[in-house]
Design a protein around this nucleic acid. Sequence first.
DNA 1: GCTTGACCTTCCAGTGACAGGAAGGTTCAT
DNA 2: ATGAACCTTCCTGTCACTGGAAGGTCAAGC
Lengths: 128, 128
Amino acid sequence: MNIGEASGRSGLPAKTIRYYEDIGLIRPDRSDNGYRDYGSDDVHKLRFLHRSRSLGFSVEECRQLLALYEDKSRASADVKDIAATKLIEIDRKIRELTELRHTLEHLVHACHGNERPDCPILEELSEG
Amino acid sequence: MNIGEASGRSGLPAKTIRYYEDIGLIRPDRSDNGYRDYGSDDVHKLRFLHRSRSLGFSVEECRQLLALYEDKSRASADVKDIAATKLIEIDRKIRELTELRHTLEHLVHACHGNERPDCPILEELSEG
DNA sequence: GCTTGACCTTCCAGTGACAGGAAGGTTCAT
DNA sequence: ATGAACCTTCCTGTCACTGGAAGGTCAAGC
């Protein structure tokens, strides 16, 4: 499929997809007319990139995560190390998002006065 | 406190803290010697910025979130709208991170063969 | 009192991760 | 065969920092 369809299916702008090729994250085929030609595995990777980028992982971290999927042997200890590190990071992010959610909810529903700047929510805010 | 201590307590580099001042996110006092002078509420905000930035919110979104804390009247409907939108976004992020965690765990523990590119995990990956 | 080193200041240039747009080739429907 | 909707490369701009130069401030030690 062409880049337009790959864009539609992955949610990433075509510009970004070309950029990801520039920096070596994906390597689509080329059709005879010179157009990029994406397969469904490419789209999988693009969707994955879309998600993990939006969750605060850097492109380099995404490259590592992608390497986990692409590692054929899957035996290497470094690969497992990377995965373990990422799992810890993900857990931290989940925890922080949960706290942020909590804080925000309180701010909207409970802390509706002028009791700041000593509002307990603002204190809670800085505990993470 | 000086910027160095504010940096230590918030986890943000001093450079970034100055940048956040440039773009109007925080407004620390100045000491007589011209040094920036941060209070504990400033540190709260900085920690908050640190967290929400690392969770994939843009600086402009962080500005909106900060506005929620700073809004004295807390009555405005737009403020509640922003908060509600952010809550939905946060829930989505939590869901996606949970899926990502799941996927990663499978990759490390279960899918340890060469059954790709048709590995079910890679398929699962693209469902989000 | 002077120096040394760790702070701090401003300013300017560079980077990472894109986004916009120009200039032009391809494909497809009418 | 002409126009619209794709695609290509290339070059520039933007956002959110990051590094470094050039210089002021401060506390400690000689």
